[in-house]
Amino acid sequence: MIVQKFFSFLLKHNAYLLLLLYCGIALLLIRFEQDDMLSKIRSGGTELQASINEKISSYGYLLNLRGENERLLKINAEMLSRTLRSETALRNEKARRALLADSTFDTSGYIIARVIDRKFSSRENMLLIDAGKDRGIRPDMTVLTPHGLVGRVVFVSRHYAGVMPVIHSDFKVSVMSDRSSALGILSWNGGAEHLAQIEHIPISSPLKKGELMLTTDFSTFAPSGIPVGRIVRIKPDKLFYDITVRLAVDFSTLTHVLVAPAKKDPEKIEMLESVLPQDKPAIINPVN
């Protein structure tokens, strides 16, 4: 009788039971998203998606080759001027000493990659680049252009990598002013694609509109000194400034990027992770 009742219950509510089963599987997949097996599936999916996207975008790329060449020449000129400026700075003893003191940043081996896909919607906000494990790309590497910081590598497949851009609500990076050295945390709270916000700069800091914000040594992934943006609005709040920054990189025209070598400082990350409570690891990762 009970068995009969059980089966009649199952038959009556089987749509709900099926829903429960599917939702249960989905929730398990969400819970074990970082699992090896799922990472492999994701990596394979990324590889497939990226290779198809690359083929699609290569047609447009061929059509715009002339404009692309002009743009690359412009980037070359900018990089040359940057190199010249860096060389001048290197002559300065203080700058040289500071650079040598930073043993965590290997300045050689920047990797040039092409942006082959960009999703900017309420469901996905990610860049895909055509460089992966094969070319030495690893998670947490910094992605930049001669103009400034683009984002951080978050997942890598054999030939491609996914980049979380600065304009992602989960992205945070430690920044400092080039003039006053005031330190804060840059994040993007949605809205305009070219504007971001800086928090935690006390109102006692001598900060002015137009100052350039650079990445700092505090970051666990980004080398210091990468331009992030310029202050366009500064408003004192109770304790801290409410700052808006115009980002150095124009994400709407981004086609090529550089990937900087990873910072070799696992000891620092380990120490940060051991100091903060184990149940809140998310605090460490985003505030980089």
Binding site: A26, L28, I30, I41, G45, E124
Partner: peptide, 20 residues
């Protein structure tokens, strides 16, 4: 779609509920 986009769990959940 989840395998292609990288958000398998959440896409799976969304699509199932949409069908339901």
């Amino acid at each position: 779609a989840g395998a292609l986009s990288g958000n398998m769990g959440i896409v799976l959940l969304t699509r199932t509920i949409e069908g339901f």
